Structure formats: structure tokens, C-alpha cells
Computed example of a mutant assay.
Amino acid sequence: MNKVSVVLPTYNCGTYVGVAVESVLQQTYSNYELIIVNDGSTDETDQALAPYLCNNGHIRYIKQGNKGHAGARNTGIRAATGDVIAFIDSDDKWLPEKLGEQVQAMEEDPEVGLVHCNVYGFGENQEVQVRGPLLTQEQLQGYSGYIFDNLYFRKIIITTTTVMIRKSCIDDVGMFDENMTRYGSEDRELFLRILWKYKARYVNKPLAMYRNRSDSEGQNYERMIKGQEYVYEKITSLYGLPQSSKRAVMSKMYQEWAREFYAKGRFADGLTNQVKAIRANPIDMNAYFALKRYARFLFSRAT
């Protein structure tokens, strides 16, 4: 039975971290260790964690200066003694069957390097909804197997708090890129390196819960865009992928961000990203059509 090392990085998340820890301790799968990495918190994180650290053989607590998500997760990976590693962010939580279901999926196929699953989204008011739909058998093919292309070309999303990875795969391809600390998207970059060589397996159940927070780093859109630009530059160069592929995916990325900005009423930022989409891939006619639609919309608002 595989031992799971659960890596939980936390930075100034004392309000929520106890809920994340509780969800790990309530797992039905018992062969695990929980490695909590306090990444230089200055809030009440120590006090929030204190009740869990007394006489609990499952938990190891590491404190360090602030290194960001990538650095904190890498500290946890270095400390891990398990055969597989699972990640949970300090403001998320898991359903009790999460580890057991994913270990079983991994043990059924030794060629699988990464297991992921569906996820619930919930907000600060605790309202819960499924973040992604349950998939049909045909759709599942895009989430399991050799799915590098699907992640690279943004056909699927893999949420970090749903992921379990064989430790041997990380030993092979390397850990999180700490150069990305100032940007984010270090999880996407690592998953792409793993999926270049290894199969994925998708558990078609929502076994994790992702918290949507208004003050989350995930709301820093400009930072996220910079991170994703870095990912595609690095991965395209690392594996010698065609520049046409990079242009296509960058155009798609900017169009997605344009829609996000428009939906939030940030019309100038939306137009900026729509223009970036055209510059990234001038032969993508969808980018021109989208720009035309948005221009008409903005003109109608102004008249």
C-alpha cells in the first residue's frame, strides 16, 4: 500500500488552514504523512495549527522564510518519505475518500504518473458548486492517458489541490520551478513536464474543494498572465515544439483572458489582450472576429 506524503504550504492563511488540516486528518486512507510548510507567515498561523501538532504522528511541521508557493512546495517534497505526493493549498479542503480513491487509481496502472479528479468550488459564504462537470466516457479520454497536448493547448484544466504524483516522476523531471515565484502558474509548468513523459489518470468524482477568495493571489490577473507566458516560452523551448504551436496557444490564452476581463467590466484590459491575441497569431481568424464583436459591444455602450 503506497504511502502518501501530503504537502500543505501555507502563508498568512491562519483563518482557513485548520479546515484544510482537518480534511486531511479525516481521510479514510490511513497510510499518509502531512507535511505542513509555514512559508514565513506573520499572522496567527502558528496558533491555528497548535492544536493539531500535539501528539499527532501523521504531521510534520516545517517553518521557513518566505519563498513563495514553488519554494514551499519544494521544501515539502524534499522532506517527503512517501511513494506518492499529494498537494493541498491551505485554504482548500478534501472529501474523506480523496486519498483512497486516487491511490487505487494509481496502483491500477504503474505507467500513470499523475492522478487528478473533479473538484467542487466554494466561496467565502460556503456556497458549494461543482467546478467542472462529470465527464462522459468519451470526454474522459481527454483527461486520462498521455494528455500533454490537451493541457498544453488549454483543452483541460488541472487544479493543484486535486493532484497526486508519483515521487519517482518528480525525481525524474524535477520539482517546481522557483524562478516562477513572482508570477505563479508553477503548477501548470510542472504538470506539463510530467505529462510529457507519463500518463495521467482522472477520477471522475469531485474529491476536493477549491476555495474562491476575493483576496487570493489567483485574482492577480496580470501576474497570472505573465506566469502563463513564461510557461509557454519555457515548455516550447524545452521540448523543441513548433513555434506555430506556441503562437496558437498564446493567442488562445489571450482570448480567454480578454473574455475574463470583459466579464468583469475591465474593457480596456480586455481589448489589450484581444490585440495581444492577434499579434501572437495573426492567422487566427477567431481573434479578429472576437475583436470585431467586442468593438461593436463597446460602441453600443458609448452611444
Rank of each mutant, 00 (worst) to 15 (best):
S245H: 08
L192P: 09
D46K: 13
D43C: 15
Y61T: 12
S168W: 03
M209S: 08
E186C: 09
G18Q: 12
M224K: 10
R154W: 14
C54L: 11
G65T: 01
I156P: 09
W257R: 07
R247F: 03
T15E: 12
G123C: 00
A295I: 10
L190H: 08
L114W: 04
R73N: 00
K292W: 07
Y232M: 07
V275E: 14
N212L: 13
G142Y: 10
Y143H: 15
L99E: 01
T28R: 08
L25Q: 06
R154I: 14
W94S: 14
K3N: 05
F267R: 05
F148C: 12
V84I: 13
D39T: 12
C169M: 05
P242T: 05
A208N: 03
V173M: 02
G18P: 10
G184Q: 05
V128I: 13
Y11M: 05
A263G: 10
Y262W: 08
L8C: 00
T28A: 09
D187I: 01
P133Y: 11
T28G: 03
N179C: 11
Y11E: 01
R166E: 05
I36W: 02
D83C: 00
N220F: 13
T161S: 13
R279S: 08
I225V: 14
P206F: 01
Y52H: 03
E178V: 14
S41F: 15
S245R: 02
R223D: 10
V37Y: 02
A268H: 11
I59Q: 05
T303Q: 04
N273K: 10
Q27I: 06
S216C: 09
L53V: 03
M250N: 14
A287C: 11
L271E: 12
N150T: 11
I88N: 02
N179L: 11
M106W: 07
D149S: 13
M224F: 06
R247M: 04
A105I: 05
R154Y: 13
V173K: 02
R266S: 06
N38A: 07
N204Q: 11
E217R: 15
I36K: 00
M106G: 13
S5E: 01
L134Y: 09
T159I: 13
A268W: 10
F289E: 12
L134E: 08
V112A: 05
A48K: 11
R131E: 08
Y183V: 06
V24E: 01
A20E: 05
R213H: 06
Y120W: 03
T160N: 06
S244E: 09
T272I: 11
L190W: 06
I147W: 04
T272D: 13
V130L: 11
D89G: 00
N12M: 11
E22M: 06
K93F: 14
Y198G: 10
F297N: 06
V163E: 03
M1S: 12
K234W: 10
S144C: 02
M175Y: 08
N31P: 02
N12G: 12
K93M: 13
G68L: 00
S144H: 05
K276S: 15
N55D: 14
V275A: 15
D171M: 07
Y16G: 01
S23W: 04
